[in-house]
């Protein structure tokens, strides 16, 4: 087959899809994407919802976004709490992507699907409990998550082991979210996705 033909075929699909989803294409979704996303708009423009990345994932971490996601329905996404990305060394999902919606990752530290953010009010490490499950499970331990040792107020024998996210290094794989040992009143760690970053100006 020729590359030209593929691109032509894709273009036809995309044009058709755009027609159907004029409303939904403006990035209202904030889904967590697989490794290799280069920005939500870029991703949405290229993803043809073929499901190949979903099939390629050996950990069944990827699933097609559900009906509630409008234009993004059918695109691959990750429910980190359910099953996070394992950052496979060979990125089978990226390799399977026929359109380059997922691309340009070589090292496990390359993906930038988002970054983790901790809710200090709910995280038990901030209360002085020895937990740090997120830190120990982090595939980029001591890089994406480090421990910040802080003295406890009014307690001269204990230290808080504060997991601290390095936004620039965090890949947004979500393993910390999956494994977080707290879920009441809610899971205190979440991934700020690329879509959210873009919408909120990178914050």
């Amino acid at each position: 087959m020729s590359a030209g033909k593929v691109i032509a075929g894709l273009a036809a699909v995309l044009v058709a899809a755009e027609g159907a989803f004029a409303v939904a294409a403006n990035g209202s979704s904030k889904l967590l994407r697989p490794p290799g996303i280069q920005g939500e708009a870029d991703f949405m423009a290229r993803c043809i919802k073929c499901g190949k990345c979903i099939e390629a994932c050996p950990y069944a971490s990827l699933h097609a976004a559900g009906p509630a996601e409008g234009a993004a329905a059918g695109t691959p996404c990750i429910d980190a709490r359910e099953q996070a990305c394992r950052l496979c060394k060979d990125f089978p999902c990226v390799a399977a992507c026929p359109t380059g919606a997922l691309r340009d990752v070589a090292e496990r530290s390359d993906p930038k699907a988002g970054y983790a953010r901790i809710d200090e009010e709910v995280c038990i490490a901030y209360q002085g409990y020895r937990c740090e499950v997120c830190y120990r499970i982090c595939p980029l331990i001591d890089q994406a998550i480090t421990l910040d040792f802080q003295a406890m107020e009014n307690d001269d024998i204990h230290t808080k082991f504060i997991p601290t996210i390095n936004k620039d290094v965090c890949t947004g794989c979500g393993l910390c979210v999956e494994r977080c040992a707290v879920d009441e009143p809610y899971v205190p760690i979440r991934i700020v996705t690329r879509a959210e970053q873009e919408r909120d100006g990178g914050r």
């Binding site: 087959m1 036809a12 899809a17 159907a20």
Partner: peptide, 17 residues
């Protein structure tokens, strides 16, 4: 009539092999 999704990986005119 609005096309939502099209999978053409089995289209022999696009991918003969």
């Amino acid at each position: 009539v609005n096309l939502v999704y099209l999978n053409f990986e089995d289209d022999k005119t696009i991918y003969p092999d």
